[in-house]
Write a protein that binds this DNA or RNA. Structure first.
Length: 606
DNA sequence: GCCGGAACCC
DNA sequence: GGGTTCCGGC
């Protein structure tokens, strides 16, 4: 943790590379940029503009100066800084907004809807470790909590937007750095108000003040939900428009950031993070993050995700529809108070505290979910050559995002939720999200204090979308279409082939209206696990395509596959119908066990 | 202004 | 590995 009181920006731990990484503990430029972006005092120097994640450097030299100050590089100038920024192109952290001087854009696309470190079935809880990726509509991104505890639930995102600027604010604009040491910044700072003086300054700021550390359920959704200031809502899919569509949360890491918890490098970067699920500090965030969730958080998470899908303009298919969860209308308060949520919100705004969520601390059940960062993007040349390659792990982003599961996990050691593009078209956003309705059920089992309407409010078919490895998808060049509205999800030929994957005897693979099918979680996990393992062994993600082909040929029911612990890596679009049939309920139990087992296996694998 | 290679530093 | 510095080219 940074030492509060230090001069300079207050950067959270996650903003620094983990000790495990040589040369680590240094703030990364993109983090720095984000930091500047979220501070009002630098609005004249750098500010969000245009599309999601797009920002303009109004005063290049000043930014360079600040950066130089931060890095103790007095000789820094925009030319150099821009070079550093250009390096982000290949990493796809940023890309240049062509035609606009000093304008860059964060590629949040790849950062969102990637991993859904859902449940820790073993614990029967479902506490989303990462907040659903939600863009702020190009407005304000916030840093993720500096401590894992901050990342525990989406609700964290509701905290005050700023977390590191209080000091900066005090210090004022020239005090960006004391050059004392890149790691000495304090992460406890808080703008304390993210919206305090930004309200009313344009769409992106309009919602600045909407977030409150203790958001109501409604607020939560608002936070995760609105199309965002820049809203580019999917045609016809706007979730009840909250005109303000306050995207209090940022697409980037941060309490409330897109990358927020998701990114939250803190998870992996904070050694000593008291989090049970915290992966080895030195590990790549994606490699060993274990998550456990509580039901409430899970629900919120799902709900948030539900909305986030819209936010990201994902195809309807990608819309995370949770059978048992109704996504509250952003503008309408939830009928039932979300007690648990409150619990999470009671966290002090300055939560860099080391206190963890109690559940977290108590729930030691290993979670099978692990994450890997998506591989670094290929260089231009490489990109030209090869279409899509997945795999590999990224670094900086990973540091900042991985823990929270935002990044894709093209490959992971343990079971992972994987996603594969169903079609070549708009594959970037053709995401299938793993349905977790059963998890929900499980989660609900122990905590029924949250009322969840039995029916979706949006009228969409209860199609759960499996999401996870967006990496493969995101892997594609998103440079120019990062925020494009996804094309309608074509039903790939694959789906029919999956019919054979029926999970319940005699019940046949139910095909949801969305064309997805139901399959027991257990099977899914198993399958995924097996696949992952296999993939891991192969080390060739490129085989996914090949496997898909095989999957199409697959005639045997999924059960067999799962029992064999092997199966083609198929693209699954699952849908669960609520309420789940008794068989599914059983499956849930089994799933818990299976998950626990997988978790253990996963651990062993690591 | 922007790009990206290359060498170098930490 | 991430960033810095330098630099030639567009």
């Amino acid at each position: 943790m940074k030492t509060p009181g230090d001069t300079g920006f207050a950067f959270p731990d996650w903003a620094y590379k983990p000790e495990s990484s040589p040369g680590s503990r240094q703030i990364q430029l993109w983090c720095f940029i984000l930091e500047l972006l979220r501070k009002e005092e630098y609005n004249e120097v750098i500010a969000w503009q245009g599309d999601y994640g797009e920002f303009v450097i109004k005063d290049p030299e000043e930014v360079a100066r600040l950066w130089g100050a931060r890095k103790c590089k007095p000789q820094m100038n925009y030319d150099k800084l821009s070079r550093a920024l250009r390096y982000y192109y290949n990493k796809r952290i940023l890309h240049k907004t062509k035609g606009k001087r000093f304008t860059y854009k964060f590629n949040f696309n790849k950062l969102v809807l990637v991993n859904y470190p859902f449940i820790d079935m073993g614990s029967g809880r479902g506490v989303p470790q990462s907040a659903p990726p939600v863009p702020t509509g190009g407005s304000h991104f916030r840093f993720p909590p500096s401590t894992p505890s901050d990342v525990l639930s989406p609700s964290e995102d509701l905290r005050s937007p700023g977390m590191f600027s209080s000091v900066a604010r005090r210090l004022g604009r020239g005090s960006v750095s004391d050059c004392s040491d890149g790691t000495s910044t304090n992460s406890e700072l808080e703008e304390g108000v993210g919206g305090e003086d930004r309200g009313g300054v344009g769409p992106e700021r309009a919602f600045r003040g909407l977030l409150h550390p203790r958001l109501s359920h409604d607020s939560l959704f608002r936070a995760y939900g609105g199309p965002g200031g820049l809203g580019r809502p999917p045609p016809g899919h706007r979730v009840h428009g909250d005109p303000m569509s306050p995207f209090p949360v940022s697409p980037l890491p941060g309490p409330g950031g897109l990358l927020g918890p998701t990114l939250s490098p803190a998870l992996s970067m904070t050694p000593g993070s008291h989090l049970p699920y915290t992966p080895s500090p030195s590990l790549s965030p994606m490699l060993g993050s274990h998550f456990s969730f509580n039901p409430d958080d899970m629900k919120r998470y799902l709900q948030a995700h539900h909305q986030s899908v819209y936010n990201y303009h994902l195809s309807p298919r990608a819309f995370f529809h949770y059978p048992n969860i109704v996504v509250p209308q952003p503008h309408r308060p939830s009928a039932a108070p979300d007690k648990p949520m409150t619990a999470h919100h009671h966290a002090p705004p300055m939560p860099h505290s080391h206190s963890l969520h109690h559940h977290q601390g108590e729930e030691q059940h290993p979670s099978p979910f692990k994450f890997k960062l998506q591989p670094p993007p290929l260089g231009r040349k490489q990109k030209d050559g090869s279409a899509s390659s997945t795999g590999g792990s990224s670094s900086s982003l990973g540091s900042c995002y991985a823990a929270s599961g935002l990044l894709s996990n093209s490959s992971s050691v343990g079971p992972k939720i994987k996603v594969e593009p169903v079609s070549d078209v708009e594959s970037d956003e053709e995401v299938e999200v793993t349905d977790i309705s059963e998890e929900d059920e499980l989660l609900d089992d122990g905590e029924g204090d949250v009322f969840i309407p039995p029916h979706p409010t949006n009228g969409t078919a209860p199609t759960a979308i499996i999401n996870g490895n967006l990496g493969a998808i995101v892997e594609d060049d998103l440079d120019e279409d990062v925020f494009k509205t996804p094309a309608a999800p074509p039903m790939g030929p694959l789906t029919p082939s999956l019919l054979g994957l029926k999970s319940e005897p005699g019940q046949g693979p139910p095909i949801s209206p969305g064309g997805t099918l139901c399959i027991p979680l257990k099977l899914r996990f198993k399958r995924r696990w097996s696949e992952d393992q296999k993939m891991e062994a192969d080390g060739e993600r490129e085989e996914a395509e090949d496997k898909k082909v095989r999957a199409e040929k697959q005639v045997e029911p999924a059960r067999r596959e799962s029992e064999n612990g092997e199966g083609p890596r198929t693209s699954l679009s699952l849908s669960l119908h609520a309420p789940p049939p008794p068989a599914q309920r059983r499956a849930s139990s089994e799933l818990q066990r299976a998950t626990a087992q997988l978790s253990l296996e996963s651990h062993g694998a690591c």
